[in-house]
């Protein structure tokens, strides 16, 4: 091989490496493109305050998406996260209103989320109901119970400092909720990539039968992915309750769809076996950026949903095409 050829080959392999990185991380590419475009086109997008607003708005979807990464990596799905969050929010608000210690109320709220998630997991693994149906059903039950209890009327007036601190205060100009969300992301990433549990999750999604024959307790691990998601839905509940200083049963409509969108936008495969924890965070942020950017461009807010849909299609489309190419 001549030197010239070697340079050429190296040049190409570097290009291929960079290309490979972006085709593996379609979300990073999409994120950069949109971020740069908005920075140049609009006046107010590129500012710390705006970035922090975007990050803060992305938290309620991002926090749950970290759990959803575990669930979807086993080829499962959890459709109950939206109403589970609202249910936990109502629970938290009414406990506080009834004079319970706020920290204790938060702890009980997290426990409720854990129970809901575990029930989902048991329905899927022990009752053998497909995840789509099982979590759709629990979702409707939680919504129904919430409506019966509140009659659809919000519980207002939760202006307690212990609660407000979660979403309304900043440390070094970073909102506390963003810090919480980032810490959870890091913990989830460590669990996913650095522990046996994470490996087992990927194994189940990659080849269920082989996972069983490798001695993995498939039912237990699968159930725990739903438990984690349930707890994180309750964390999101605490954050939105702090944000609104209220529990609003009719708020956050279609939240589960945003969570799932953030997860798959981040590069986690719906067919299992591929988990992207940081990607889910970026996915949740990207969806808010798009909405934020549209506002900056003074485009009618009615367009928001349609544009978010297009961004999801584009990002996933690029990813799918890249995967096909690689497989030939």
């Amino acid at each position: 091989m001549s030197a010239n050829e070697m340079v050429k080959k190296d040049g190409r392999s570097i290009l291929r490496m960079v290309g490979g990185y972006f085709s593996n991380n379609g979300i990073v590419a999409a994120f950069l493109v949109i971020f740069l475009a908005l920075s140049f086109i609009t006046e107010n997008f590129f500012s710390w305050t705006n970035f922090m607003n975007i990050a803060r708005s992305s938290v309620p979807a991002a926090v749950i998406a970290f759990g959803m990464v575990f669930v979807i990596s086993t080829t499962g799905i959890d459709l109950s996260v939206g109403y589970s969050m609202l249910f936990c929010s109502t629970l938290l608000a009414s406990m506080i209103k009834n004079g319970l210690n706020i920290y204790l109320a938060m702890l009980l709220c997290l426990c409720a989320g854990m129970v809901i998630g575990t029930v989902n997991g048991v329905l899927v693994t022990k009752a053998k109901i497909t995840p789509f149906i099982a979590t759709l059903a629990t979702s409707r039950i939680l919504y129904g119970v919430n409506m019966v209890y509140t009659h659809g009327v919000p519980i207002y007036g939760l202006s307690y400092p212990e609660l407000q601190v979660v979403d309304q205060t900043r440390v070094f100009s970073v909102p506390v909720s963003v810090i919480i969300c980032t810490i959870i992301c890091i913990i989830c990433a460590i669990v996913m990539y650095k522990t046996s549990f994470g490996r087992h999750v990927i194994a189940i999604g990659s080849n269920n039968s082989a996972a069983r024959l490798s001695g993995i307790n498939v039912d237990l691990v699968t159930t725990l992915t739903y438990t984690i998601t349930g707890v994180l839905s309750a964390v999101a509940a605490i954050i939105i309750t702090s944000k609104m200083e209220a529990a609003v049963p009719g708020s956050y409509a279609g939240h589960e769809v945003d969570v799932i969108a953030a997860t798959v936008l981040g590069g986690t495969s719906m067919t299992g076996g591929k988990a992207k924890m940081g990607g889910a965070y970026l996915g949740a942020i990207l969806m808010i950026i798009v909405i934020n950017g549209l506002a900056m461009l003074r485009i009618n807010t009615l367009w928001q949903s349609a544009v978010v849909g297009l961004v999801i299609l584009a990002a996933i489309g690029i990813d799918t095409i890249a995967t096909y190419r690689k497989k030939g």
Partner: peptide
Amino acid sequence: TDGLFLDQSIRWNISIAAL
């Protein structure tokens, strides 16, 4: 169908039963 995790690496496949 019962043994390999085809889309994972060789290293990953070797250590999965003895983590």
